[in-house]
Design a protein around this nucleic acid. Structure first.
Lengths: 212, 212
DNA sequence: TTATTCTGTAGTAATAATACTACCAGCACT
DNA sequence: AGTGCTGGTAGTATTATTACTACAGAATAA
């Protein structure tokens, strides 16, 4: 009997995922949780084949989640399930050890495909993510395809950026990520510099513009 | 046989809602759509008891959705289903004619309760929304809640607000308007207080939402 | 394989922004 | 004719944020 852990804080989304998984796999044991700490707890206690993980889950929300999971279960398949804004995050999570990446607004067919693929021990990437991957390895692009400027941000920078466009203060970001305030400030400066902008409004606009 | 229309663009969320509804009502016909235009189309063609409507649905996203729906089916129950950020606008939708309001991150029990209540022809408000309602009638302002919260801003405040959402710094605004920095800061605080927000991002969102 | 750039991190010193308080002039009721 | 609130303005003291600098390890280019 296969076991799947669904770590996602929105109850309806959990319901939806659960429905799909049950439909795809006849004999399956699904465990749900709405926060990262208890997810880790569960991972230490029981083996799972697949972890469906919401980036924005309370207690998580950073790249370290990957190693925290792998520490408990090195062979588990991790399917990142991200909200609208975090699309840009995908690559960084894959680099950090995830096996698949899915956006919440994906059509049902894609979700099914992702889950079956993952349960088959293969990696799953959406078309959009694949494209980003290509862009990232060949940054020197021609004039015809404008590169996505958001891709020049490093993993940590992207994390900070993501929090910034939610209106989070530098202080709060520092606390969330357990960094010094000045460190976060440095990231912020680098983000602004790389994106050639000078305030949060422009950041929000740029992100909106390039993230779908 | 009861009929329900689910207008929501995220497939998983639709799945979740559908699962709950099917579980609650044995004999039910559920129709799904992922954009507002086709929702309207469907409403013109078939009668429904209940409409579950995502605020952020493509083609919609404004208060006029309420009258557009009522025009087709005056007696339908409308349950607004909103994402995290839009919480603040719940009241406005209720005033505009919705019968219930639910946030996407509500726990499963609440969702079930909302749907049963609504199918019973009663209105459903979450605790949070009720609280907002109370707050809105008790404080120092008259009962008539302006449909557009931006209207509570004074002239000078509005001027400052416009500059703020362009990303202008407090210092620069002070220079532009020939005011002391602290004066501008006071305006900024008053704006935030009146609009019940706490950062520029939220300001930008609120202004965008209410200014077209 | 070395030189160079990029990333993650942080400190010190300076600058920007905020909280809190205040004051006066209208206006709206009483 | 007084009481109370809103609107326009600002000061002081405190906090938050930035600028500039630094440094080590990773990644990459030469």
């Amino acid at each position: 009997m296969k076991s799947v852990l669904v770590a996602e804080d929105h109850a309806i989304v959990r319901l939806g995922i659960t429905a799909i998984i049950r439909d795809l796999i006849s004999q399956v044991n699904i465990v749900e949780t709405d926060n990262f700490d208890s997810a880790i707890q569960l991972l230490s206690e029981h083996p799972f084949e697949l972890l469906v993980l919401d980036i924005n889950i309370p207690g998580g929300n950073n790249l370290q989640m990957m190693s925290a999971v792998r520490l408990r279960q090195p062979d588990i398949r991790i399917l990142i399930f991200s909200g609208y804004d975090e699309q840009l995050f995908g690559i960084n999570y894959l680099q950090a050890g995830a096996d698949g990446y899915l956006v919440k607004h994906a059509p049902e067919e894609e979700i099914r495909k992702a889950i079956t693929t993952m349960m088959n021990n293969e990696k799953y990437l959406s078309e959009g993510i694949k494209e980003q991957l290509v862009q990232r390895i060949s940054p020197h692009r021609s004039f015809s395809t404008p590169a996505n400027p958001l891709l020049v941000l490093s993993g940590r920078e992207t994390e900070v950026m993501h929090l910034l466009i939610k209106g989070t203060s530098v202080l709060h970001i520092a606390q969330t990520l357990s960094l010094q305030i000045t460190t976060v400030s440095t990231y912020k400066s680098r983000i602004f510099e790389k994106l050639e902008i000078s305030n949060i409004i422009e950041l929000a606009e740029k992100v909106k513009l390039y993230s779908n």
